[in-house]
Nucleic acid binder design. Structure first.
Lengths: 150, 150
DNA sequence: GAATTTAGTTAGCTATGCTAACTAGATTGC
DNA sequence: GCAATCTAGTTAGCATAGCTAACTAAATTC
């Protein structure tokens, strides 16, 4: 008895899905990086900044948690953002904690990067059907759920 | 006249999709990195190795193209993989070119990493319905297309 | 056979990850 | 009320990974 798995029906196997997501993530970032370098700001800084812009002000530790990096790593990322004038650091009642907040310049830089990213991605998306684009939108939702549960 | 865009119907806007894909890619990799570190091999080395294992032997330049990095970067990645005994380097008729090939040890390491990744991801995927899992599978295909066109 | 092109390496910079060890402020406990 | 402990963040030091510029050596072109 021969069981032939239909290869064309992709991604049923969790291993397969895992590998593909992993590979997709790596290569997507490599592509995007090219455009993001134009902003003169590294990917980790960009990502941290976006948390502050879209998620609001927070402490360094909270930012580290959100970005899944260790405090020393975030400390340096924050130092870079501050040096570039993209965020500001305020004291809080708790003298140990800092309150990090995106500056107007930071918001502008992020928006510009977003525009560039869209420029590239919109071009790539243009050749897809409406249905496929809708699917992609749904994928990002699902993906967020997956990551949250990871 | 007021046009209210339904916010809940996510991802129609290419900007939105771009941002989400970007963010998802970053955070997915950060999660996976934790498990991948157990293999004692960096993410770039792991990714390059997987090209050799699943895509077959090729030259350094081809590998650099596949991985979307510059030759000097790939040169160093390859040096690391060679030092660790995960790949081998053979001469070709063209004296400038090298032929890179995964070793048995390299294939084993990669398979082990795959297992670990699956262990995590399968756990995360388990809470999704069959339909959602199928969707995720289909959408990784879509994602590959997007990246190819980027 | 000289000039050019091509493949890969080396050198040197930056950014990002980590752990270990430190400082300083807040909290706890006696 | 002050010592011990805990918590937030920083500093130091290491490794990986990205880049460009400049080099070496082999192949190709003229």
């Amino acid at each position: 008895m021969k069981v032939v798995k239909p290869k064309s029906f992709a991604g049923r196997d969790p291993t397969e899905i895992a590998d593909r997501l992993h590979s997709a993530a790596i290569h997507l970032l490599r592509r995007v990086r090219v455009r993001d370098r134009e902003s003169g700001i590294g990917p980790a800084q960009l990502s941290a900044l976006s948390v502050l812009v879209f998620g609001g002000p927070r402490s360094l530790g909270e930012l580290a948690d959100a970005e899944q990096v260790r405090p020393p790593t975030m400390s340096r990322i924050v130092a870079g953002l501050e040096r570039a004038g993209l965020i500001r650091r305020h004291a809080t009642e708790d003298g140990r904690r800092v309150r990090l907040e995106a500056s107007a310049k930071g918001r502008k830089i992020l928006e510009a990067g977003r525009q560039r990213r869209v420029e590239s991605l919109a071009k790539a998306l243009a050749s897809f059907t409406d249905k496929e684009q809708r699917q992609l939108g749904e994928l990002t939702d699902l993906l967020r759920e997956v990551i949250r549960k990871l």
